[in-house]
Write a protein that binds this DNA or RNA. Structure first.
Length: 579
RNA sequence: GCGCCCUUAGCUCAAUUGGAUAGAGCAACGCCCUUCUAAGGCGUAGGUUACAGGUUCGAACCCUGUAGGGCGUACCA
């Protein structure tokens, strides 16, 4: 049951009856103040302007034709022409009761399942994953889960960087290490350190840099030795990232990896296709594409370079090959890219070339969903005190340690393995939620303090609300699935909670359409907050509470618990029975 | 130079995409545990939405300009 859709349809029908043309939207939205009802329809004012008539009179006509029998108590006109709708408490109660009997809550399956590619995480395999990979990984995973839950066919694509210049450095450094150690392969447990050493030599020793560049060419040409060493790094690195995914509770697996190197054989074809269509031309020795649509006001066109003057390929080339693969082999209807906002121009260029060249099918929606840069607490791009990046593995470990300390300080009833498991769920949940809860497109301040905070709008707050509910059922020894009776909404906290519960699918749909997970976070936080108020105001198991009221409130608790659990699951965050 | 993005309470963030009196959490202050987990609840205080104009019934949001900041801009990814 989607209230907003229902009301929109009813109001729109009334508008038609009032002679208002179809292109005027009813503009039904939740009210932000109780005195203005539960929902308001703001369409009368816009329509009145179009029809050059009095908005309040038009609103009156709409209300006359509006059929909300059994749904709303009264509808009234306010201000310049707002239509305020007060939903009936017993109607709301019935809707929540019905949602409890369904298997999948209010999460409706889409009527039009699509083939959706979600491109996310995509770390560079030459280094360990760092905090900069968090957003893409977590946001992309939330979207993949949500689209999946709606019944779409989701194809996850982890476009890992495994084919660039950095591997020439690593291979060359490794070759030297092996000869220094009489042919034995050194320990590569600290890939990050190994990368730093390689980079240092690459910058300081011209001869080393030349050999590194030569090794990249040999690698991409299929040289057996280079491929062997390369594979060594890739295996270590993939194992590392999968360890991170496991800790993070991210749904990516080995099968979702579709690396840059996988497109190696397609690259010459991409260039020859572009040349055959007259799109790619030679300029300063490189192959570039000039597109009119990428021109600025003065007519200057920034070219898209698809092949270097030395014959090498660039990431634009690989991305073009990937678009072609996704559209033609994977039959994508939508491709969602979760990539840093700094690559906006690059994505725009790739999309433009892909469309012009026919690599993207015309019906396929290419969507770059950018996210902001992580900043330090000084507002400048984030670095550790030593000037390096924070490893994701370290961040996650720290989060779990802090969560354990928190359990300790709160005098948790848990201990042993359960306690460690719970600490993991709390710590990891807090890290993920801190990122998901912020508007995706803005830059954000990284701070241990706020990311590992456990108060206010955080995952632990939502998890705590869940455990409070579980605790009630445990105390009363009641099976949540077998509560009798029906819901009656008497207290204002009960009605507010019920209304919020019924709006779950609105939040999920919005995230699916616009790829802004923070909207679901806000929803879940508000839901939890309303539950906490209800919890304080409405006793359940107290001896003076009659059984009908008790059952009604238990049903509200159960609906809340299920919504929280499902919502958090869509964000990739676990709940627990006790904390 | 050109392009994209940002500026909201002391701090970190929201604001259902143009709706009514801009909301939360930290931090501050005051209450509430012999009662279902106080990681909580209730309340007080905190705002010229960077600035100046404009558009209209109505602007944090749209348009123009200004200031400050970030990022990108021909062979890195």
């Amino acid at each position: 049951m989607k209230i907003r859709e229902l009301l929109s349809a009813r109001v729109r029908a009334a508008m038609t009856a009032a002679g208002i043309p179809d292109d005027c939207s009813p503009l039904v939205a939740p009210s932000n103040r109780p005195q203005f009802g539960d929902y308001q329809a703001n369409g009368a004012m816009g329509a009145a302007k179009k029809l050059k008539t009095n908005p309040r009179e038009l609103a009156a006509k709409i209300i006359d034709a509006l059929d909300l029998e059994g749904i709303a108590d009264n509808t009234e006109i306010a201000g310049p022409g707002f239509i305020n709708i007060h939903l009936k408490a017993n109607w709301l109660a019935k809707q929540v009761d019905q949602s409890l009997s369904g298997d999948r809550l209010q999460l409706a399956q889409t009527a039009t399942p699509k083939q959706i590619v979600v491109d996310y995480s995509s770390p560079n395999l030459a280094k360990e994953m760092h905090v900069g990979h968090l957003r893409s990984t977590i946001i992309g995973d939330a979207l993949a889960r949500i689209l999946d839950a709606q019944g779409h066919r989701v194809i996850r694509q982890n476009h890992v960087g495994d084919w660039g210049t950095q591997f020439g450095m690593l291979i060359t450094h490794l070759q030297d290490q092996i000869s220094e150690h009489d042919g034995s392969v050194p320990q590569l447990s600290d890939l990050e350190k190994f990368y730093r050493e390689s980079k240092q030599r690459f910058d300081d020793e011209p001869a080393f840099a030349d050999r590194a560049r030569a090794n990249v060419v040999k690698l991409q040409a299929g040289d057996a030795d280079c491929l062997h060493y390369w594979r060594t790094f890739i295996d270590i690195s993939v194992a590392h990232s999968e360890e991170i995914y496991r800790k993070l509770n991210v749904t990516l697996s080995t099968e979702d990896i579709c690396a840059e190197s996988a497109y190696n054989d397609d690259l010459p074809q991409v260039i020859s296709d572009l040349q055959a269509q007259g799109l790619a031309v030679e300029s300063d020795g490189a192959q570039v594409v000039f597109l009119e649509e990428l021109a600025d006001k003065k007519g200057h066109i920034t070219p898209v370079i698809v092949q270097k003057s030395g014959g090498g390929y660039l990431y634009a080339t690989t991305d073009l090959a990937a678009v072609r693969h996704r559209c033609h082999t994977l039959s994508a209807d939508r491709i969602l890219y979760f990539i840093d906002a700094r690559q906006s121009l690059h994505m725009k260029q790739v999309f433009a070339v892909a469309r012009t060249a026919g690599f993207a099918t015309p019906s396929c929606s290419l969507e770059h969903h950018p996210f902001g840069t992580m900043m330090g607490e000084d507002g400048k791009p984030f670095k550790t005190r030593a000037g390096g990046t924070v490893k994701l593995a370290d961040l996650l470990d720290e989060a779990v340690i802090r969560a354990e300390a928190l359990l300790e300080s709160k005098g948790s009833v848990l201990d042993g393995e359960i306690r460690r498991q719970t600490a993991r769920k709390i710590g990891i949940g807090a890290v993920k939620y801190a990122d998901l809860a912020k508007t995706r497109t803005n830059d954000y301040i990284f701070s241990w303090e706020s990311m590992l905070s456990f108060e206010g709008n955080t995952a632990p707050y939502l998890q705590y609300a869940f455990t409070r509910i579980r605790s009630i059922f445990a105390k009363a020894a009641i099976d949540p699935m077998a509560i009798g009776g029906s819901i009656t909404l008497a207290a204002e906290q009960e009605k507010a909670l019920a209304l919020k519960l019924l709006r779950f699918s609105e939040a999920v749909d919005q995230v699916a359409d616009e790829a802004y997970p923070h909207l679901l976070c806000s929803y879940l936080y508000e839901l939890s907050s309303l539950f906490m108020s209800f919890y304080e105001a409405c006793p359940i198991l107290r001896s003076d509470i009659d059984s009908a009221t008790r059952d009604s409130r238990l049903r509200l608790c159960q609906a809340t618990a299920r919504t929280l659990e499902t919502g958090l699951e869509l964000l990739g965050i676990d709940v627990m029975e006790r904390m």
